[in-house]
Design a protein around this nucleic acid. Structure first.
Lengths: 226, 226
DNA sequence: CCAAAAGTGTTAGGTGTACACCCATGT
DNA sequence: ACATGGGTGTACACCTAACACTTTTGG
């Protein structure tokens, strides 16, 4: 079927790319995965991982591939969603390049990243106070954070940042890191527990201070769309 | 600057298009602007107005142009926003075509549409019960309606469907048409009036039954983003 | 016994929702 | 006078936000 019909002459051919704003918790802070570019333009600048979509490849597949090849992230994203398309004429000096930006959430764990492909380095850096970024990636990151904050209320995206079992203070930490403000402990517990998406896992975690009850996600509790 | 840097060899070149889901109220119903295609593929099928982005043209400019040339809509959209990008490999038989879908709201008034360009016809048809559509346009329309419903709560997008002055029952009609369900009259009035975005315009409108108070939008009341 | 972090209830204000009757006009 | 659509108030349930002390553990 493909090829039997012709495109109209004025059909604009553009470079199609994806960029990924991948978030995780580190040291009680919301971090975003950034890579240091190895090639022009913007060599040595920090940027969101991303690149061109290959032929026959779906957009979300391209997003996953870029995550894996540019940064050697071992863990699967727990959430991946397209959130905006950046197509300004002059956003890339190489020509008309349209980027479909994706939001990813990676689970907790010492998410070790190493440079892959043609990047000089990769690191988890502060999402709320990022370094200067290449291209229009600060716009992309801003919008990604807003979307993440929106999703936090709608779906239960906070759980995706944590391991299978976790404590309520840890969960509250995720909310606070994403919203970038403090929450009241008692109100938070009440809200989450009456929501019915958590079940106590019996165990307790030890450390400094009183050990906390461990929870895991209830059977239902799925991430909703839109 | 453009052209001095080369794209990598695997950079995928794709056709870049925009599609527009333009909404308006007609006969107390939410309607979407559809065109009847004049060319293959899907000739004679209904479709959302849309087409290829031209060189040097921003995405929102392309969306506006397609609205104007394919349908001869006289009125400016009161709201125009990108809401999702459809890039599935097989969504168009002519090859890899990525469409950045836009949501538009047109103000009230007898919005007369005539076929323009290479379309056979154009019409305002029911948004909630549309005819069969070309390509993946039913997916686009579904998502556009969901976004419109979301925006209705967040911003005050309902006002954009009405002329400068309007009555509360008319405004409630817009809400009901978009949400596709009935609302309580007293609760609706209370909510809208305490919100402070409406000011009575003194005049009253006559017709059958008791005349209704006319309102206009208050000085503030701007449409918020994201 | 001290430091550190976890856990626990109540109150007041505001918001959403359900619900039925009277009013102003045109015919 | 009647048909048609516009306009009005209250009560209850629920959610939100503010607020301080006790409990459990490790050192």
């Amino acid at each position: 079927m493909t090829g039997t019909l012709e495109l109209p002459p004025q059909a604009m051919q553009v470079g199609l790319a994806v960029d990924v704003a991948a978030f995780a918790m580190h040291a009680g802070e919301l971090r975003v995965l950034l890579v240091q570019r190895g090639a022009l333009p913007h060599a040595r600048d920090w940027a969101l991982p991303g690149g061109f979509v290959h032929g026959g490849e779906e957009l979300h597949e391209a997003a996953l591939r870029e995550l894996r090849t540019e940064t050697t992230v071992q863990l699967e994203p727990r959430h991946l969603e397209q959130f905006y398309t950046f197509g300004e004429v002059d956003r890339d000096p190489r020509g008309r390049i349209v980027s479909v930006a994706h939001l990813a959430v990676l689970p907790h764990g010492t998410v070790r990243v190493t440079a892959g492909g043609h990047t000089l380095g990769a690191a988890w850096l502060s999402a709320h106070q990022p370094p200067p970024l290449a291209f229009d990636h600060h716009l992309i990151l801003d919008r990604a954070i807003k979307r993440l904050q929106l999703r936090l209320e709608y779906a239960n995206l906070a759980l995706e940042f944590l391991p299978d079992t976790f404590t309520l203070p840890e969960l509250q930490g995720v909310y606070e890191a994403i919203l970038d403000r403090k929450l009241d402990k008692r109100n938070f517990r009440k809200r989450l527990l009456t929501q019915g998406i958590l079940t106590p896992s019996g165990e307790r975690r030890s450390g400094v201070g009183r050990p906390a009850q461990l929870y895991k996600r209830a059977k239902n509790a799925r991430v909703a769309a839109l």
